[in-house]
Design a protein around this nucleic acid. Structure first.
Lengths: 204, 204
DNA sequence: TTCTAAAATTGAGTCAATTCTGTTTTATGG
DNA sequence: CCATAAAACAGAATTGACTCAATTTTAGAA
């Protein structure tokens, strides 16, 4: 039987994540000490490192929860997109952006992004890359759907277009979290303006 | 007179940068200890922190040297661009990418990018953002030049287009430095493929 | 040349992430 | 029910970036 041991393990994981999420939000990523997280989760420092390779991986687990929720929400748009290329893109991207600060502060995003480039081969680095890829795939899926619906030209290179749209959005999002003053509405407007060029090129 | 003191100061700056550049290349950014850099530059640890706010700023100084060289090289292309929109973009982007690994290893780029998102308000963070902006401006300048030459449609939103092209290229470059296996030739080919969509939309 | 205030340097000390080793807990075979 | 190996835990020790109070060096006036 895998009873007690497995249950305790899952429970400790949960406690660590909950403690970390709370402390990251309150004190910021840098401000949250491992020792404090350990105390709040009622485990020792050593145990945390038994569960996660480093502090970044704890944040990584939280980011994954968030992005998976976003991916889920995005599916709805892909299934039933607005009947207009510009609106379809704006709606999907809107979901991504509006959700983004639900659980994660800008500071947490900054740290998460930094770690994912700093340690691309760590568990979190790889997970983050996979999440980026999943988002790119979803944008591609939307384009494919719009092609089926006859709203996007058939001869468009959907793969390249999906990457282009995702890369631009992602870079804009990075700039957004780097500035505490930047507002969501302005971010969305800027991306719409950029995508307008593409929409003109690909709409039937 | 600003004689001795200023000269010693400049000399120490140079020695620190040279020592750091060498050690970063040999041992990697993380592997290079401040203590070792200090020893090699023949100054004390405290002095290094008198010249640079933190380890990242030392790397930042090296990155600035590199990017400024690239910006310089890019000016030639803007002044006399190839007589074809696709080639013009490819040539400019080619210069950026081919130069990129001259002084900086992929690992150094990863660290530099990570720090710039992690600490956007540090001297280095701000400098890095300024460099990004300068590159975006240069791409915009190229587009403006191509419009003057009658190769790009007049009604194109040059500002938005420049950002779009830079953001996509930059994101592709980030992915490139995150993977030790990725090759420059493939990176350029992928970006060309993405830009083809744009070229079709904006060429006269 | 000598003196003094300002500027710069120094390196031992602090702090927090990560590692390591000995101890405790759990699962399982006899 | 007990013995034992494997798994997990605890927290003291290590490590390396960064700080700070004390000392040294420089520029310039007398």
């Amino acid at each position: 039987m895998s009873g007690l041991r497995a249950r305790q393990k899952a429970d400790r994981h949960r406690r660590i994540i909950e403690a970390a999420a709370e402390l990251f939000r309150e004190a910021g990523y840098e401000g949250a000490k491992i020792e404090t997280i350990a105390a709040q989760a009622e485990v020792s420092v050593g145990t945390i490192y038994n569960y996660y390779q480093n502090k970044g991986d704890i944040l990584g687990a939280i980011v994954s929860l968030e992005v998976n929720e976003v991916l889920n929400a995005g599916q709805g748009v892909v299934a039933r997109p607005p009947a207009n290329v510009g609106d379809a893109l704006d709606t999907l991207i809107g979901i991504y952006i509006e959700h983004s600060l639900h659980y994660l502060s800008k500071e947490m995003w900054r740290q998460a992004m930094a770690i994912s480039t700093q340690l691309p081969d760590s568990p979190f680095g790889q997970a983050y890359t996979a999440l980026d890829r999943a988002l790119t795939e979803q944008i591609r899926a939307l384009i494919a759907r719009l092609q089926v619906l006859g709203l996007v030209r058939q001869d468009i290179d959907g793969a390249a277009l999906g990457e282009l749209i995702f890369n631009n959005m992602n870079m804009m999002f990075i700039e957004f979290v780097k500035s505490d003053e930047a507002r969501i509405a302005e971010l969305r407007a800027a991306i719409r303006r950029q995508n307008r060029i593409l929409v003109a090129a690909i709409a039937v």
